[in-house]
Design a protein around this nucleic acid. Structure first.
Length: 282
DNA sequence: CTAGGATCCTGTCAGC
DNA sequence: TGCTGACAGGATCCTA
């Protein structure tokens, strides 16, 4: 599922392909996906692509923006001029492109198309005035982001203020922006902290260690172009490679990467699959 | 305040 | 082989 590194990878691609292009027509095939009125975007030129935690944002020259949340299976894909491998597409794009799971199509000038695919239909696109972005019910409530504005001091504050389990806290978008299940699991492993620990039970050393571990796994995620273990593909429709570097995520029953002799265990926390090494994570 | 369950959806996979 | 049912998961909402 697309988290900060995946959305950042997509963002960099879309920046390359969409900026400077005008939207000639928008096809909304599934109404519930797009709210706020696609008509505001038609005729507008895309002047910037931004990312707020896991949310993508296309800014138009007419004062409107399109916010996009991919949830688990959203796939924003560009097809058209400038692509190095225009014919190649990942098998993770189920139903073809455009296909049965293509819910919104942005027709661009110069023959490009921007597709929003989502076979689970949880993702959304919201059209808002650029000036009112921060008032959006989702974007406005996002917490500070690692690798951007989350400092060690802020992290210590956030962690010390709750007895919620540390993993659930890491994934709470209103507290910390951008971290999802994959990177929360791997960061906790790297820091040697058990996912069920109460956040406020971490000492200063553990908190600092976790802060650095989060930055490390997110940077690795970006370095490898994101994790394509489920539906994630880049804006070119290609796969990332972080799944080849998972530490504990999705590795139940496999040996601990520290070679401690234990096997990775899977449990459930906050309704999410949670992976950890019972020996290395205290 | 916190924990846990239900909800939205459909591809995938285990079990028969 | 083919069908059925359980399951996963980001975020929200509801109940305990």
């Amino acid at each position: 599922m697309p988290e900060l590194p995946e959305v950042e990878t997509i963002k960099m691609g879309l920046e390359k392909y969409l900026v400077g292009h005008r939207v000639e027509k928008i096809e909304v095939r599934l109404k519930k996906i797009l709210s706020g009125g696609e008509e505001h975007l038609v005729g507008g030129k895309i002047i910037a692509v931004r990312r707020f935690a896991k949310v993508l944002c296309l800014d138009f020259d007419n004062g409107y923006s399109a916010l996009m949340h991919l949830k688990m299976t959203g796939q924003p894909i560009y097809r058209g001029p400038n692509l190095k491998t225009p014919t190649h597409l990942s098998e993770k794009i189920v139903g073809g492109l455009p296909g049965i799971h293509t819910h919104v199509v942005f027709h661009l000038d110069r023959g490009g198309n921007f597709y929003f695919n989502d076979f689970r239909r949880f993702g959304w696109i919201k059209v808002v005035k650029t000036q009112e972005l921060k008032g959006d019910v989702f974007v406005g409530k996002l917490g500070p982001e690692p690798l951007r504005d989350l400092t060690e001091e802020m992290f210590e504050q956030i962690v010390s203020k709750t007895k919620k389990s540390i993993k659930v806290l890491l994934m709470d978008q209103t507290k910390i922006g951008g971290v999802g299940n994959i990177y929360a699991n791997d960061a906790l492993f790297l820091a040697g902290i058990h996912p069920k620990r109460a956040a406020n039970s971490l000492d200063q050393n553990e908190t600092l260690n976790l802060f650095k571990s989060i930055e490390k796994v997110l940077k690795d995620g970006i370095k490898y172009g994101g994790a394509s273990e489920h539906a994630y593909v880049t804006s070119e429709g290609l796969e990332g490679r972080y799944q080849e570097h998972f530490l504990v995520y999705d590795r139940a029953g496999l040996p601990c990467p520290n070679d401690c002799g234990e096997k990775i265990q899977k449990t459930n926390l906050g309704g999410r699959g949670t992976y950890f090494c019972p020996k290395c994570q205290k």
